[in-house]
Simulated assay, not measured.
Amino acid sequence: MTLMKYNQLEQNYPSTFSGLLDKFFNENVGTTLKQFSPAVDVSEEADKYQIQVAVPGLKKNDFHIDLIDGKLTISGERKMEDKKEGKNFHTIETQYGSFSRSFFLPDDVAQEKVSAVYEDGLLKLSLPKLEHATKKYKIEVK
């Protein structure tokens, strides 16, 4: 086992000038771009694929779902409530801001039949597979 030196100060103060500049510019840019990436589950069944996106606190019309040339994009925005009268927040762990997730769909998805339902904080997309007519042929050897 190799022991590595742990320096707690390096988390707050980078050890190089370049690291200091990176930290300065990334933190300043990051504060203006309030974005997050919601958790996504993708599953497959015999007849369809399913995508579930965990985004509690939104309404159905807060989502924008586009399907262009086999690329599915789910986006929206979760805004923090403006009413803070009489509230002292001690901790805020809920993610707010805009989000966008994109997925390239397999060729066997029936794109015109994709549907979406939002309930209990989960956006559920159902992506039916194309129906392939399996024809069975008997080939006789001559």
Rank of each mutant, 00 (worst) to 15 (best):
L33S: 03
N88A: 09
A116V: 02
S102D: 08
T16W: 15
V29W: 02
I92N: 14
G76T: 08
S18E: 13
I65V: 15
S15W: 09
L3W: 07
E119W: 01
G76R: 04
K135Y: 06
Q11I: 10
S98F: 09
D107I: 12
S43V: 08
L72P: 06
N28L: 14
F89K: 12
F24T: 07
Q95P: 04
I51R: 05
G70V: 11
S126D: 08
E44V: 06
Q35M: 08
D108A: 01
N12Y: 14
V40H: 06
K48H: 05
K71L: 12
V141I: 15
S37A: 08
E81M: 05
Q50K: 13
R78D: 00
P106W: 07
V55H: 00
L127G: 00
Q52E: 14
Q95C: 01
F24W: 09
T32Q: 05
Y13C: 14
L67M: 09
A54H: 14
F25Y: 13
K83W: 02
P38K: 02
N7L: 08
E93S: 07
Y96D: 02
D120H: 11
K83D: 10
F103R: 10
N28D: 12
Q111Y: 04
K60C: 06
Q8F: 13
D47G: 06
E140R: 12
N88D: 08
S115V: 07
L122N: 06
G30F: 05
L21V: 10
I139S: 04
T94R: 14
D120I: 02
G57M: 02
K124F: 00
I92S: 14
D82A: 13
R78N: 03
S18C: 08
R101P: 00
L67W: 01
S18K: 14
V53H: 00
K23W: 13
G30I: 03
L72M: 03
H64F: 04
H64S: 10
F63Q: 09
K84F: 06
L3D: 13
T73Y: 00
I51M: 15
Y118N: 14
G86W: 07
E119C: 04
L127T: 00
E119R: 12
D69P: 10
L9A: 15
P128E: 03
F104C: 09
D69N: 15
K23I: 05
V29H: 02
S115E: 10
M80C: 01
Q52F: 03
E131V: 12
K59P: 01
V40G: 06
V53Q: 01
L123T: 08
H132I: 09
F63H: 11
T2V: 14
T94Q: 15
S37G: 04
N61P: 02
Y49F: 12
F104M: 15
P14W: 09
G121T: 06
K138S: 04
S102L: 05
R78A: 03
G19L: 05
I139H: 06
F17P: 04
L105W: 06
L127S: 00
V117Y: 02
K124N: 07
V109R: 01
E27Q: 12
T134L: 13
V114A: 01
Y6D: 14
F99G: 05
N61I: 14
Q50P: 04
V117P: 00
N61Y: 13
P106L: 07
L67K: 07
S37M: 08
D107H: 12
E77S: 12
Y13V: 15
E119Q: 15
E140M: 12
E119L: 10
S115Y: 04
K84T: 12
